[in-house]
Design a protein around this nucleic acid. Sequence first.
DNA 1: TTGTAAGCGTTATCAT
DNA 2: ATGATAACGCTTACAA
Lengths: 349, 349
Amino acid sequence: MPRPTVKDVAAAAGVSATTVSRVLAGNYPVSASTRNRVLRAVQELDFVINAQARALVGGSTRTVAFIVRDLVGPLFAYIGQGVEQQATAEGRVCLVCTHHGDAERELELIELMREQQAEAVVLVGGGLRTPEHIERTAQIARSLERVGSRLVLCGRPPIGPDAPATVVEYDNEGGAFAVTNYLISLGHRRIAFVGAAEPEHTTTSARFDGFTRAHRAHGLTVDAELVVGGNFDRESGYQQTKALLARGTELTAIIGITDMVASGVLAALREAGLRVPEDVSVAGYDDIPLSADLSPALTTVHIPHEELGRAAVRLALHRDEYALDQHLLLGTHVVIRDSTAPPREDHAG
Amino acid sequence: MPRPTVKDVAAAAGVSATTVSRVLAGNYPVSASTRNRVLRAVQELDFVINAQARALVGGSTRTVAFIVRDLVGPLFAYIGQGVEQQATAEGRVCLVCTHHGDAERELELIELMREQQAEAVVLVGGGLRTPEHIERTAQIARSLERVGSRLVLCGRPPIGPDAPATVVEYDNEGGAFAVTNYLISLGHRRIAFVGAAEPEHTTTSARFDGFTRAHRAHGLTVDAELVVGGNFDRESGYQQTKALLARGTELTAIIGITDMVASGVLAALREAGLRVPEDVSVAGYDDIPLSADLSPALTTVHIPHEELGRAAVRLALHRDEYALDQHLLLGTHVVIRDSTAPPREDHAG
DNA sequence: TTGTAAGCGTTATCAT
DNA sequence: ATGATAACGCTTACAA
C-alpha cells in the first residue's frame, strides 16, 4: 500500500477528509468521539501528513535555508548551530547548502532555495564586496522579497539601504581594532598581520581596517612589509609565517586573521625555535574552541557565533515586529590568554 | 504581484502551461522559437518553479535528511559534509536536524522528516542499543520504507536483519583493537580507558570491546580500576584523568574514547606535570583535524568521515543498484603521531 | 509541436 | 459539529 492520505484516514474513521484535517490541525471544534476515531485511524494507518501538499495550500513551507561555505569550519558550524536551533525553536525545518567559497555557486543556491520556498535564506560568513557582486546580491534580495521570502546576511555587511535584507553583523572592524590596540598597549610596535589577501572580501577588509585604525590611533603607521597575504586556514598561517621569518622581517607580534591562521603561525614559530609569547606574541580572531587548547592558549577576538545564527533567524521570521531593526550589530571582545605578552626589552618600542 | 506561476509565464509567452512545463523540464520536444519565448518570459517574470507543487505531482521531493547530534563536533561535521556533498552531487537538497543526544527527540525528528517526504533519512553517529530503542528504530525503518523513503544508519550497527535500513559503518571495534594492540606492542601493560560510561551506547561498547579483545589477544586482563566513565567531550577527559591521577592508579598509557576526550587527558597530564609520551602515552579516536595540532600531536584511530557520509547517501539513493550491498563496513586504521612511545624502563611490563 | 483536462494531498470556504 | 467543493501550482495522459 502506498503512503496513506487524509482520504484513507477519513475512510477508515468514517468521516470526511475535512474532519481529519481539523483533528490534525486542532484549530476547529471536533467532537471528542470523532477525534478519537480519527486519531485511531491515524495510528493504524501510520499516517503522516504530507508537508508539501500542506505547504501548497497553506502558503508557508516552514522552512529556513542556511547557506554556508563549509560545514566543517568551527566558526561556521557554531553559527549554523545557532541557525538550526532557532529554526527548530520556531517550528521550522532547516535546509543546508555549502558553496565552498564559490560566489557563483552561492547565487545558484539562493535560487534553489527560492524554488524550495524557504521562508528565509541565511547567508553565513563574509562575501565579496565588488560592486558587481553587491548588485547581484541586492537583486536576489529583491527576488526573494517578491515571493515573500527574506535574505539574511549573517556576518556580512549590508548591501545597500534599498535592498530588502536582514543583516546580523558582528563588529569585525572593532574587534580587530581592540586586539591590535591591546598589543600596541603592551608595547609592541612591529606587529605583522597574516592573511590580508583578497581585500574585496568583507571579512578581510574589515579586520585589516581595524588593524590599521589602531595603529593610527597611536600615531603609528603600518609597515607594508608586515602585512602578508594568504587565506583563512592553518596552512596559510604556517606558510606566510615561514616566509616572514625567512625574509628576516623584524617583528614582535603577529595577528592571524583567524584562529586557524594563528594556529599555523604558532606552528611555524615553534619550528623556528621561537617561544610564544616570550619572543613573539600571537593573536587570532574568532575564538573558536580550538584556540583555548593551543599551547600557549591563544589570545583572540570573541565573536558571539551562536547568537549570530539565532538572531538571523529570529529577525527574519519576525520582521513585522522587528520592522525597524533589521540590522543588528553584535559586539566582539578580546579574550586574553597566554599567547601575548609585552615584547622583550631589546625589542620594546 | 505575488509569486508568478507557470500560468503567468504561459500567458506572457502566449502558450499553454503544459508547454512551459515542457520547456522547463526539457524532457519533451518543443520548437526553438516557442522555447525562446518561454525562456524570455521566465526571465522577465523572474519565475522560479515551486518545488513543493512539483513534488506533489512528480512524486519525489529530491530531498535528503540528515539527523545528527550536533552541528559542531568535528566528527559529525565531516560526516555531514560528506552527506551534503553527495546529496548535492545527486541533485538533492539537504535537510538537517540536531537532537543533542536526546534519543526521544531523534525519533521525533525522523517523523518530521517523514512528513517532509525525504527520500532518505540519514542517522549519524552511534545510538542506544537497548532492545526497546532498537525495536522502535526498526519500526521507523519500516514506516519509512512504506512511504518509499529509506532509513540510513551511518556510524551505527544494524538493527536487525529484517529491518529495511541501509547501514554504513566503520570498523569501530577493529580500530579500538588496533590502537590498543599498538600500545601493548610498545610494552604497555597498564592502559587506562577513559570514557566508558553508557555501555548501551553503540560507540562506547564497540570501542571498549576492541580494547578488551586486544588485551585478551595478548593474554592480558583489563584491570577494572583502569576503566573509567564519562562522555565524549574534552571536559570529561580532563576530569576523569584528574580523578585517575588523584587515586594514584598506576598506569603507563591512556586511551581516550574520542580525540576530544584525549585532548582533555593531555591537559590534565600537563597540569599534573607529567610528560607525554615520556611519562604517559596517550591515544585518541576519530582523527579529527584537531588531533594533529595538539602538542604532542595525537596518536589516534582514523575514521573515513566524509566517505561515511557520501556512502550513506549513495547507497540509499541507488538501492536498486546496490540492492545486495546495503551494509557497508569501512575500514579504520591507527595514525601514529607523537603522543605514544614505549613505557619508561621502570614501568615496562 | 501544442493544448486540454485530470489529479497529486491538503486546507479554506461555504453549506448544512 | 460535520461535509462537499474549490483551489493551491504543477505534470502527465490523451487529444488535436
